[in-house]
Design a protein around this nucleic acid. Structure first.
Lengths: 190, 190
DNA sequence: CAAGGTTTTTGGACCGGGTGCAAGAACCCA
DNA sequence: TGGGTTCTTGCACCCGGTCCAAAAACCTTG
């Protein structure tokens, strides 16, 4: 499998010193096959998280369309529930090695460069989800703040080590205070 | 000049469709000369801002070393003064075209990818500056929050159009509420 | 089993960003 | 005028990423 070969090589030689050709070579496929599975080399760093990010974006989109459906509560309550549900479904075994071994593998620069595309997409999805109940400015702010809180929670989860609690706990702890200030929101900047 | 040639070409053809070779060609120099002035193509997008970012990082570093020197007040007050001083020195003519013309030039993807390196460096510099008076966690939080506020202020300044107020005003407006909550800070998460 | 169509894999050519190096030009200072 | 330093240039190279067309693998259906 490509992911396994990549993780091995990144541990052995570091991420920058490992070429896509080496990865595909070890996996026993041709170089072009790599791009049938990943759009870019940096996507390898996000495989563990991309699945849950996509799941969250999808859940926000579909649950946002069925506006007055089964889910109850305010938009913020439903948002919180969706985020925690996705976090709960994230497999405990899928701890992103590109983050936990960032120093060893030398993945930091490329992680930084590839992060905004994901985080901004998530922020935008969250903003759209809460847009019906808030002003445009507040909706965007909630998107940014929620992403920041999720990132902080995931980061704490990753760095907690092998005896870590489930991801849901960290995200919940970070999310609660971050969103608390938006329940009785007065509004936009004067 | 390389910057002028680049800005022209980005307006004409867009950033992704413009190669470094085209830029150097129009500027009348060889391709390798480009890398004597810029470390990467994306550095062109940040020329207007990089100068002020570096100035702020430098001011934070030197003013942080001379710990009990001329500057007075709390760390947050000195931080605010330094940020606003750098903002005040930023030339009004240097509005980053890569941001204001982002849609036209197609610079968004590369702006996103190259932003974290700058923002995280600034965040780290700010955290170091206030580290003496706050806990590690709060110092980092102040770094992140301050960068977020600065970014919001700069963004508002850029989008304000030709009749914009000085940059200092926008940054001050964004910074004040962001840092207000840290003056009487109780401390870390329980 | 065989034929036919679809998906996946592969090879090859290509482009552009970025690095390293060594030769040459330009510049500066005595 | 000469000599040293800095800047520029050309060249070769690596790697990530795109495009395309041929071939292989796969799946289906008669």
């Amino acid at each position: 499998m490509l992911e396994d070969a990549a993780a091995e090589l990144f541990l052995e030689q570091g991420y920058p010193a490992t070429s896509i050709e080496q990865i595909t070579q070890r996996a026993g496929v041709s170089r072009n096959t790599f791009f049938n599975y990943f759009g870019a080399k940096a996507d390898l760093l996000w495989i563990d998280l991309d699945h849950s990010i996509a799941a969250l974006v999808g859940a926000l989109a579909t649950s946002g369309e069925a506006s007055v459906g089964t889910p109850s509560g305010t938009a913020l309550e439903r948002l919180r529930a969706l985020i925690l549900a996705v976090a709960a479904e994230h497999p405990a075994s899928r701890v992103p090695w590109a983050f936990s071994q960032a120093e060893l593998m030398g993945t930091r620069a490329d992680l930084e460069a590839s992060a905004p595309a994901r985080l901004l997409a998530l922020s935008e999805a969250i903003a759209s989800f809460v847009r019906a109940e808030f002003s445009e400015f507040i909706a965007r702010t909630i998107g940014s703040v929620a992403v920041g809180a999720i990132a902080a929670g995931v980061a704490a989860w990753i760095t907690a080590g092998v005896r870590r609690d489930p991801l849901q706990a960290y995200v919940a702890a970070a999310l609660a205070p971050a969103l608390a200030g938006f329940t009785d929101t007065p509004g936009d900047p004067s």
